[in-house]
Amino acid sequence: MTEALNVMLLLFLIVCAVCVARIRDMLSAVILFASFGLIMAIIWQQLSAPDVAMVEAAIGTGVTTLLLVAAISKTRRTE
């Protein structure tokens, strides 16, 4: 059961990473990167590293997204 969940999470993580690298719209890339961080946080929790999961959820999903959106609003949106 847990293995199936882990495999699904890892597959979703790979899909997110490839999409972040390939997509042309910067805002979509940032949103995809946030979902990458969220999945990564759940995976850290599955790997029994709860404090890393907390930091990943707060920084990788929250603050990084906010800073990147602020950077996009200062620059261009398309690549």
Binding site: D51, M54, V55, A58, I59, G62, V63, L66
Partner: peptide, 11 residues
């Protein structure tokens, strides 16, 4: 961790 969460709330 806690500081990051608190700072994220202010942001």
């Amino acid at each position: 961790s806690g500081g990051a969460i608190f700072g994220a709330s202010l942001v």
